[in-house]
């Protein structure tokens, strides 16, 4: 594999290690749809440990180029965790001070990871979810706009563009004309937007499917239930072909199964992605069409480990 050669090269900075993630065939999970190939892109192989490295790095480097971000400014954004880890690692790499606003019920490992890079964390009301964190950042920036660079991953075109130039191209490099379907969870919608746009430019048709939770109150961290949320400015439903809804329980169970059957210990949004990919693969198999379904494993499961039971007075 060429990507293996690329990953072994010497790098000048950890930021250069973003992208060119491996694509792995899910042989065991895929047994339920034997005529269809299912592949997962291991986005946890990015240096910050998640798919969000791509968007964060591109938003930061493009802002440096345009002068919106300088070493005198503070980068501030709302995040449920992974984007925050990505800002934190590249903030440390590029010499940028970072402040993050997150709901206080974000899992502790991610708060700790962001803090390890020197990031300052401000908490918003857990009852208000990610929308509450967004509103809080807007208030802070509005009070002193010159002091901050607010990348705003929900509105920044460089979020989907990171996937247009990266994820989408890499998938085509790896599987070429074989790919028939692409499946990705919708949170900021950056991954599904950018990757779908790139795949839709390919010479043969590729059906792109967004994954959303079935319910407004859900436990698929990283995913958004659009009907009950602030719709991200970068979102455009015309960029993809279908929405597939997954329940929290199905996403969680698939995440467990991936660890045991495929040796891939991933987070719940990845479980939801693979659950949807498998259901689509089963549909194709039943119709006798065959196919090749590619999906995204956003991050590792260890970001979500709960505290031990005796640490019962935890704050998430």
């Amino acid at each position: 594999m060429r990507s293996a050669l690329v990953r072994s090269r010497k790098l000048g900075s950890v930021a250069e290690a973003v992208g060119n993630t491996p694509l792995v065939r899910l042989h065991h999970v895929g047994r339920d749809a034997p005529s269809v190939e299912i592949y997962a892109k291991l986005e946890f192989c990015n240096p910050g440990g998640s798919v969000k490295d791509r968007a964060a790095l591109r938003m930061m480097t493009e802002a440096f180029k345009s002068g919106q971000l300088t070493s005198d400014k503070i980068l501030i954004d709302s995040t449920s965790g992974n984007t925050g880890v990505a800002y934190s690692i590249f903030g440390a790499a590029l010499g940028v001070r970072v402040q993050l606003v997150m709901p206080s019920n974000v899992s502790k490992p991610r708060k700790d990871i962001a803090a390890a890079f020197g990031t300052e964390i401000l908490f918003s009301d857990p009852m208000e979810g990610s929308d509450g964190a967004i509103r809080r950042v807007r208030e802070i920036v509005a009070a002193d706009p010159d002091r901050y660079f607010y990348p705003d991953q929900y509105s920044n075109p460089n979020n989907p563009l990171a996937h247009y130039h990266g994820t989408g191209k890499e998938i085509l490099d790896a599987v070429g004309d074989r790919i028939t379907h692409f499946v990705a969870g919708l949170g900021t919608s950056g991954t599904i937007m950018g990757t779908s746009r790139r795949l839709h430019e390919h010479t043969h048709p590729i059906r792109c499917i967004a994954v959303e939770p079935t319910e407004a109150l859900h436990g698929l961290e990283g995913l958004k239930h659009l009907p009950s949320s602030l719709v991200p400015a970068i979102h455009d439903a015309r960029a993809y072909d279908e929405t597939f809804r997954v329940s929290t329980e199905d996403g969680w169970d698939m995440a467990d199964r991936l660890a045991q059957d495929e040796a891939l210990h991933v987070g719940h949004s990845s479980g939801a992605n693979v659950f949807a990919a498998l259901e689509i693969a089963k549909r194709l198999h039943a119709e006798g069409r065959g196919g090749c379904v590619v999906t995204i494993l956003c991050d590792r499961g260890d970001r979500y480990f709960l505290p031990m039971k005796w640490e019962k007075r935890y704050t998430w």
């Binding site: 798919v51 449920s80 019920n105 857990p126 929308d131 900021t188 859900h218 991200p232 929290t248 998430w316």
Partner: peptide, 11 residues
């Protein structure tokens, strides 16, 4: 009594 969701966010 408080009902606290697991979380929501962006991917």
């Amino acid at each position: 009594i408080t009902i606290v969701p697991a979380i929501a966010g962006g991917c």
